[in-house]
Amino acid sequence: MARLLVLTRDGATALAFLALVALIAAKLNDRPDIQHHGAFHAADGDSLVLDGERMRLDGIDAPELSQTCERQGQDWACGRQAQHTLQQLVSDNSTQCGGNERDRYDRLLVTCRNNAGSINARMVASGMAVSYGRYQQEEGQARARKLGLWAGHFEMPRDVRDQARHESSGLQRLIGGWTGWE
């Protein structure tokens, strides 16, 4: 009987300790959003800069700045158009962007809003960005209406980046082979 009481007490103590650790971990993860307000500069179709802070719109992926797409048999500068569209959306002083996580490039991952609503969602809904984990409904509507990128053929921005990295590493190997600096 005494052994059962000791086991019960020890189990309850261990459970209470684990609950305390879980609460502490949750509190540490509960970082407040970093908020920015004002007229932002669009670095490309999914990246912003304000007062030296680099930000990336969370949940979307826009064409690379140099990326071209095809529409009605013609190439068009879809990366530049995505940047232009985002710039129009964030140039209003009422724009607010907030987030509390950073990507591998140390950019703050943000969701942005202004008087007209969610800028992240509007980029996808206009067809100038694709869903990247969020905004699937907006992407489906843009795709059905053949807006922006969906009006023709394009490579997914991730594939363009992967291809550029692959070509870059191949060039580095080639130069390294010539110079012996592998």
Results as ranks from 00 to 15, higher is better:
residue 34 I to L: 02
residue 61 D to T: 03
residue 30 D to H: 10
residue 174 L to V: 07
residue 61 D to V: 02
residue 151 A to R: 08
residue 89 L to H: 01
residue 84 H to P: 11
residue 115 N to C: 09
residue 66 S to C: 03
residue 70 E to T: 10
residue 88 Q to G: 05
residue 141 Q to R: 14
residue 27 K to T: 13
residue 74 Q to A: 14
residue 171 L to M: 12
residue 162 D to C: 12
residue 45 G to I: 09
residue 101 E to M: 12
residue 7 L to M: 15
residue 173 R to G: 11
residue 132 Y to F: 02
residue 134 R to L: 09
residue 101 E to C: 09
residue 154 F to A: 08
residue 61 D to S: 04
residue 46 D to I: 01
residue 114 N to M: 01
residue 135 Y to C: 03
residue 182 E to G: 09
residue 17 F to D: 05
residue 159 D to K: 14
residue 24 I to Q: 14
residue 109 L to K: 06
residue 81 Q to K: 08
residue 147 L to F: 00
residue 13 T to V: 14
residue 77 A to S: 07
residue 138 E to K: 00
residue 160 V to T: 07
residue 33 D to I: 13
residue 58 D to W: 06
residue 107 R to V: 02
residue 75 D to Y: 13
residue 177 G to M: 12
residue 175 I to M: 12
residue 133 G to N: 06
residue 67 Q to H: 05
residue 146 K to C: 08
residue 62 A to I: 04
residue 161 R to A: 07
residue 148 G to W: 02
residue 109 L to C: 04
residue 137 Q to V: 11
residue 24 I to T: 11
residue 176 G to P: 12
residue 39 A to Q: 05
residue 125 A to P: 00
residue 52 G to R: 09
residue 107 R to Y: 03
residue 115 N to M: 10
residue 30 D to K: 12
residue 55 M to C: 10
residue 110 V to A: 05
residue 112 C to H: 00
residue 120 N to C: 00
residue 17 F to R: 06
residue 150 W to F: 10
residue 6 V to F: 15
residue 134 R to S: 07
residue 24 I to R: 13
residue 106 D to H: 15
residue 112 C to M: 02
residue 143 R to A: 10
residue 63 P to G: 06
residue 170 G to F: 15
residue 169 S to H: 15
residue 147 L to K: 00
residue 147 L to N: 00
residue 116 A to F: 04
residue 59 G to P: 08
residue 149 L to D: 01
residue 139 E to Y: 05
residue 72 Q to E: 13
residue 38 G to S: 01
residue 152 G to P: 06
residue 66 S to Y: 04
residue 90 V to W: 05
residue 134 R to Q: 10
residue 25 A to D: 13
residue 62 A to P: 01
residue 124 V to Q: 01
residue 176 G to F: 13
residue 109 L to T: 10
residue 12 A to P: 10
residue 39 A to S: 08
residue 57 L to D: 02
residue 64 E to L: 09
residue 118 S to Y: 04
residue 6 V to A: 14
